[in-house]
Amino acid sequence: MTTLQILVLAIVQGLTEFLPISSSGHLILTPALADWPDQGLGFDLAVHVGTLLAVVVYFRQDIRSLASAWWKSLRGSPSADSRLAWYVVLGTVPAGLVGLLFMDFIEEWARSVAIIATTTILFGLLLGLADRMAGRLDLTNMRWGGALFVGVAQALALVPGTSRSGITITAGLFLGLSRKAAARFSFLLAIPITALAASAKLFTMVREDVPVDWVALLSGTVFSAITAFIAIHFFLKWLDQFGLWPYVWYRLALGTVLLVLLYSGFFGS
């Protein structure tokens, strides 16, 4: 990989992982549009580790509080924080199971430009509808069924173009959560599922003895972490001011451009 490829793909991953516009779709589309070779499993692992580091650092106080409360709940002292911690665990299960059982099938079937364009538009429209239905509930109002509902929605994000953050925020808004509450739960859910995804990629690398370019991997991790941290900060800062419609319009525009390029033969040339 060239320095330009490393920088661009790391920034793309960092920006899109937590914005509701699909990181997996952009990581597939960027090399396709730039006529670059696929960046490979190792680099995908590196940028996922980078975004995981970013969300852990950004929510470190929340993680500390939730972990402490969860541990106390095991000893018979439940609290609002411990329930939220258990909701994060429950919300991770559906995507973890679907990924374990069907990831190979999804990787083969769902990485096409047509699929990405379609999911980008459809789930963008769903995000816009959910934004208009945003409520005022915070995470103390969430219940087990709601956490499972968001978790099932997260499993849909295994299809590129859906957006993990987009579909989980959408599900949270349909439950009546405020924008910030839905986004906070989405970001907390990102921690275990991203760790699981990174672990799966690492296992595949070890099993298949994938060659490692350590400079590219380290650079990708650092740049994606910095970009993701900044993206989380400004996304949350601007969420109530601008809502989610800027991302909806971006998704609709991107999906439309992809369909035009697809049917003009651009990706087949």
Rank of each mutant, 00 (worst) to 15 (best):
R136L: 14
R75C: 12
W86K: 13
L90I: 12
P94M: 02
L139V: 10
I63C: 12
V152T: 07
T168K: 04
I121Q: 08
L175Q: 00
A117Y: 09
P94E: 07
P78R: 00
G172N: 01
K72R: 15
A134V: 10
W86G: 10
G145N: 07
L127C: 12
A95D: 07
G124P: 04
A110T: 05
F123N: 06
T162K: 05
V89I: 11
T120C: 11
R83K: 13
G99I: 00
T92K: 04
A80N: 13
G151K: 00
W144T: 15
S178P: 02
A110G: 08
G99F: 01
V98M: 10
P160M: 00
L74R: 12
V159E: 00
V159R: 02
G145F: 07
L122A: 15
F102N: 09
V89Q: 05
N141F: 15
S73D: 11
T168F: 04
F123M: 06
T168P: 01
L126I: 15
S163Y: 08
L66N: 08
D131A: 14
A153K: 02
G91A: 08
P78D: 01
A153M: 04
T168S: 02
G172T: 01
F102R: 10
R132C: 11
V93M: 05
I116F: 03
D138T: 08
A157P: 00
I116Q: 09
A171H: 04
G166H: 03
V98K: 06
A157F: 07
I116W: 03
A155P: 06
S65I: 14
A67S: 14
G76D: 02
W144L: 14
A95P: 08
F123R: 05
T170M: 06
I169D: 00
G99S: 01
G135E: 05
V88E: 09
L66K: 07
L173D: 00
G96P: 04
T170D: 07
P160Y: 03
K72Y: 14
L137E: 13
E108T: 15
M142F: 07
G135D: 00
I169G: 01
I106V: 10
L129R: 13
A171F: 02
F174D: 01
